[in-house]
């Protein structure tokens, strides 16, 4: 398995969740991206997810999408797929509102630091 860390722009969360539903393991994977509680230096918000996937994930994520047996919004999934950018040493990327940034690597915290996003501080409890 490999670990991927993803920063999804707030405006693409719904589409990205359909992509996760499409290439994930079950219908519940459409809850992969939650609140946009991370931000870049410009204040743009992102939902972040990180976890283990099969080694074939990068290739699968870039392949022609097939509708899963539990159904998915394929148009939304395709929009999200088109917005994916994968960080490489030769072509490093940072998080941006116009793409879904993916880093492959064990250290999720290091990945997020490299993408230039930080957690939005929680509001103080009443």
């Amino acid at each position: 398995m490999i670990t991927i860390t993803i920063a999804c722009p707030e405006a693409l969360i719904a589409d990205a969740n359909q992509l996760a539903r499409c290439i994930g393991y079950g219908p519940d994977d459409d809850q992969t991206y939650g609140a946009a509680s991370w931000q870049d230096a410009g204040g743009n918000r992102y939902a972040v997810a990180s976890g283990p996937v099969g080694a074939a994930f990068p290739q699968a994520a870039a392949s022609l999408l097939a509708s899963p047996q539990w159904g998915a919004d394929m148009a939304a999934a395709a929009r999200a797929q088109a917005a994916i950018r994968i960080w490489t040493e030769d072509q490093p990327i940072t998080a941006s509102p116009d793409h879904i940034a993916v880093v492959i690597g064990d250290d999720a915290r290091a990945a997020l630091a490299g993408l230039g996003v930080t957690q939005v501080p929680e509001e103080a409890e009443a």
Partner: peptide, 28 residues
């Protein structure tokens, strides 16, 4: 090590198992 944990069974005998349905949200 390195495998996701989508379910851990409760050892108290009460059946209060802990689970995670979303693949990327599972602890490791």
């Amino acid at each position: 090590p390195g495998q996701p944990v989508g379910l851990i069974r409760d050892l108290s005998g009460r059946g209060n198992h802990a689970s995670q349905a979303v693949a990327l949200s599972r602890p490791i």
